[in-house]
Amino acid sequence: MIALSDVSGKEFYLNCDLIYRIDRSFDTIITLTDGKKLRVIETEKEIIDKVIEYKRKIYNGFSEGEK
């Protein structure tokens, strides 16, 4: 899961496997596979970087202390 912040600044965690698409309007809008939309303050690039970092941890195994 990746940590994101909604437009009010409240942090939440998102299962990144549920992301269908990411669009940029005034805010960044994440559309999930079930059609639900989330507005977040992170940019598309920040979200993509978080997903890549998370997937690397999964595929390479968590190192001690990162669990």
Rank of each mutant, 00 (worst) to 15 (best):
residue 57 K to H: 07
residue 23 D to E: 15
residue 17 D to H: 12
residue 49 D to N: 15
residue 45 K to I: 12
residue 44 E to I: 05
residue 22 I to W: 04
residue 62 F to T: 02
residue 60 N to A: 11
residue 23 D to V: 14
residue 29 I to P: 01
residue 17 D to A: 14
residue 53 E to D: 13
residue 12 F to E: 05
residue 66 E to A: 10
residue 10 K to W: 00
residue 66 E to G: 03
residue 20 Y to D: 09
residue 35 G to I: 07
residue 19 I to G: 02
residue 44 E to A: 04
residue 49 D to L: 06
residue 19 I to E: 00
residue 44 E to Q: 11
residue 62 F to H: 11
residue 64 E to T: 13
residue 20 Y to Q: 11
residue 48 I to A: 09
residue 30 I to L: 02
residue 29 I to L: 05
residue 61 G to H: 13
residue 51 V to Q: 01
residue 17 D to F: 11
residue 40 V to R: 12
residue 12 F to Q: 10
residue 37 K to S: 15
residue 50 K to N: 01
residue 50 K to P: 01
residue 57 K to C: 02
residue 17 D to G: 14
residue 65 G to F: 05
residue 66 E to V: 02
residue 63 S to M: 05
residue 59 Y to D: 00
residue 49 D to T: 12
residue 38 L to M: 14
residue 25 S to I: 09
residue 36 K to D: 08
residue 21 R to T: 10
residue 12 F to G: 10
residue 15 N to K: 04
residue 62 F to M: 06
residue 36 K to M: 10
residue 59 Y to R: 09
residue 54 Y to G: 00
residue 39 R to A: 12
residue 14 L to M: 07
residue 33 T to M: 13
residue 28 T to K: 04
residue 26 F to N: 13
residue 14 L to P: 05
residue 63 S to G: 06
residue 40 V to D: 01
residue 48 I to E: 06
residue 53 E to L: 14
residue 22 I to H: 05
residue 16 C to I: 07
residue 55 K to Y: 08
residue 56 R to G: 02
residue 14 L to Q: 06
residue 27 D to K: 12
residue 24 R to D: 06
residue 35 G to L: 03
residue 54 Y to L: 04
residue 38 L to I: 15
residue 42 E to R: 02
residue 65 G to A: 05
residue 32 L to R: 08
residue 11 E to I: 12
residue 30 I to Q: 00
residue 48 I to S: 10
residue 31 T to A: 02
